[in-house]
């Protein structure tokens, strides 16, 4: 199993440092969710882990070698990244998109090996897109489209898959559809790291939760360990109660808000 880790990683856009000297070990074979308030740097961290952003300091390691030292194609065969809300060019068909996932394995003589074909087929079947493979992406629903992008990342055939908010712009049913797919992929042995907005979904699906605040890791561990009222107060500046998810028993955050405050006040009086 490949180990992904960051050591003393610093990331910046122009002159604004977002992530400062951060170290993190991604547990192999598990689902890790990065959570935190808007602008805390969780997406930046994910981009850094996927070498989309060059570090200002420190490095990201795959096993023991720094990914900046490896050829970018070599990295692409071990680590796939799906950025937030990717936009497909007009008219691109599902199968053409998914076939792009084989890019890191191709050269100008070998452009469509039998293995390429097999893996693309597999990716389509795992994501249940065989029926739609000839359709162009802009005719699909939001959930189907996101599945197609995930299928492309799958065709990359990597052990590690990074996703930046894979559920944005999807309605609730499609969010669950995508998260279930990721759960199934993890079941088949992939390491998954994703940025998630919804804390409760993060707790349900993730084995390992990383709470980011101001470019640093505030807390990391199992959802049970991380999702406390104190942590949420500190990370999101939000008062809440943590209860149990009625279905899975995972922690669930219920915000109090002004209305809740008034209510509890009037009750106590």
């Amino acid at each position: 199993m490949k180990e992904l880790s960051a050591r003393n990683l610093s990331l910046a856009y122009d002159n604004t440092t977002i992530i400062r000297e951060l170290s993190l070990e991604i547990p192999s074979g598990q689902i890790t969710a990065l959570v935190g308030a808007n602008g805390c740097g969780k997406s930046t961290l994910l981009r850094g882990l996927a070498r989309l952003l060059k570090p200002r300091g420190g490095a990201v390691y795959l096993n023991s070698s720094s990914i900046l030292q490896m050829s970018t194609k070599e990295v692409a065969r071990q680590l796939g990244i799906l950025p937030q809300a990717p936009v497909a060019p007009e008219g691109l068909t599902v199968k053409d998109l998914v076939a792009q996932g084989r890019y890191p394995y191709q050269n100008w003589l070998q452009q469509w090996s039998p293995r390429d074909e097999k893996i693309v087929q597999q990716a389509l079947s795992i994501t249940h897109l065989q029926e739609m493979s000839e359709r162009s992406l802009d005719t699909l629903s939001g959930g189907q489209r996101q599945r197609a992008w995930i299928a492309m990342a799958l065709a990359q055939d990597t052990e590690i898959l990074l996703l930046d908010e894979p559920t944005t712009f999807l309605d609730l049913a499609h969010q669950v559809e995508v998260l279930d797919l990721l759960y199934e992929l993890n079941d088949r042995g992939r390491t998954i790291v994703m940025v998630l907005h919804d804390l409760n979904q993060a707790c349900r699906y993730a084995d390992y939760l990383v709470a980011v605040k101001d470019g640093r890791i505030f807390a990391a561990g199992t959802p049970d360990a991380v999702m406390t009222e104190e942590t949420i107060q500190a990370v999101f500046d939000l008062e809440c109660r943590v209860v149990r998810d009625p279905v899975l028993g995972t922690p669930m955050c219920v915000p109090i808000g002004r209305k809740g405050e008034n209510k509890s006040f009037s009750r106590s009086v």
Partner: peptide
């Protein structure tokens, strides 16, 4: 054609 991030991710 798929955008910078995707292309970079693909190696």
């Amino acid at each position: 054609n798929l955008g910078d991030d995707i292309a970079r991710g693909l190696g």
